[in-house]
Design a protein around this nucleic acid. Structure first.
Lengths: 238, 238
DNA sequence: CGATCGTTTCGGCCGGGGCCGAAGTGTCCG
DNA sequence: CGGACACTTCGGCCCCGGCCGAAACGATCG
């Protein structure tokens, strides 16, 4: 009747990293996939630089963040896609967010719900619409878990995106990520990241300000309609 | 530059549920997929019944556990496969467990590493070996995320397991679960659960005591060899 | 009914840890 | 070089929350 797994303490200490409001807000901000400086995060969370410094050290040591020192700046980013996935998953299981209090916050929230990045892939109504279209056209199959079909690989190649070279590492080609506004799955993994990168590179989408929210350009609307039959106009607020 | 996501507090409060050593040990114990009484968990963790009661209430309210009252007993179990998945994921990212201190703990740990259940599917070296065999024989494909092939569906049907009826709900047919002893993926999802259930029902595996560890029977060794080419003898301790 | 047992509620103790400001370190720039 | 800046370290404050024991509650069983 012994306790083979003394894993309780390990799990608790790991979860504790995210169990603080300030640290959680750091991680959510870093979900945009970029590297932030300590000072930016401090201002974001409204705490003293000294406090931020200690939090970041804990997160780095715990394996959630990776850091890069440049001169007098300390840049941090999420340690990898698995970490981003984990945080999104947890966030998806947490209680739904409270209703926004100000008009500005509400409209910013609406923009996020329409189209945004989720670490390195597309999310929001745009992300789920694209995923639905890929499924409908047989480019992605979802009956037994997301995976790209042969037609899907061809579709990506025609787009100018070479996925075969992306077989480095253990990251799955396609995986589903639960969207916390839609509560529905959308495409993540290598293919999701490649699609998002292409959408930004090709000018289909542009970032709104410095936020994660996206605006779909004229070009993008045309491309999405022609390639996938997605009509961006339908993504307007409900 | 407002903060559209006031999701930090939500995430922190959710993570806090697992950030306590006692609650974490409860959840890890419940990973065996069964329902435990409050008293059993109290004894397991070595805390007073009153303490346990409060912890369980918080876990239930937070959506991690489901409870069922029967007479003077309070049974709790994980709220669902998604929760089990989440806890396994977190556990997989946490620091590796310390080396066991006693001989008994070491041998129990070895048994767990050899073959065990992970919520409702098979894990340990047995789980990864079966997954490898399914991949090798083209019954499961993993290049673009786990999914069952047509041949795989037939294989399950020949086994007497009807997966097509299991299309209720949103649970994926096949998904990968990271093993925390092997640090390698193994088959989870509906198919993984069905296979585990079949292995137990058909007497391929029997539980060792009341633990999650499994022993493979003579019948099971024969079946695994004939059906998948898995040689259980190779799973002995390194 | 009374005894017992599993669980819950409450009050109180105590430690961990998040917070800040002040002082220190290293970097960049004029 | 000297000042500005980004970050870190340290000391101290304070509160949150995990813990227990005592007592209450409700189900079960003689």
């Amino acid at each position: 009747m012994s306790q083979p797994q003394s894993r309780g303490p390990q799990l608790a200490r790991f979860a504790a990293l995210l169990a603080d409001e300030t640290r959680a807000s750091f991680c959510l901000a870093l979900l945009d996939g970029r590297a932030w400086t300590a000072g930016e995060l401090a201002r974001l969370a409204g705490v003293a630089p000294s406090t931020t410094s200690e939090h970041l050290s804990r997160l780095v040591e715990g394996g959630l963040l990776a850091e890069e020192r440049q001169g007098r700046h300390r840049y941090v980013r999420l340690a990898g896609p698995q970490i981003a996935q984990l945080i999104e998953d947890l966030s998806g299981h947490a209680a739904p967010p409270p209703a926004p209090r100000t008009l500005g916050a509400a409209s910013a929230g609406a923009a996020m719900a329409r189209a945004r990045t989720c670490y390195d892939h597309l999310a929001g109504r745009l992300g789920t619409a694209i995923t639905d279209a890929l499924l409908e056209r047989g480019l992605l199959q979802g009956a037994t878990g997301f995976s790209l079909t042969d037609a899907g690989l061809v579709w990506f190649r025609d787009l100018g995106v070479d996925l075969s070279s992306a077989r480095r590492g253990r990251r799955p080609m396609a995986r589903s990520c639960l969207d916390w506004t839609e509560r529905r799955p959308h495409l993540a993994g290598v293919a999701g990241a490649a699609l998002c990168r292409h959408a930004l590179d090709a000018g289909w989408c542009v970032r709104i300000g410095s936020q994660r929210a996206l605006r779909v350009s004229e070009d993008g609307q045309r491309a999405l309609r022609d390639l996938l039959g997605v009509r961006v106009a339908d993504l307007r607020d409900l």
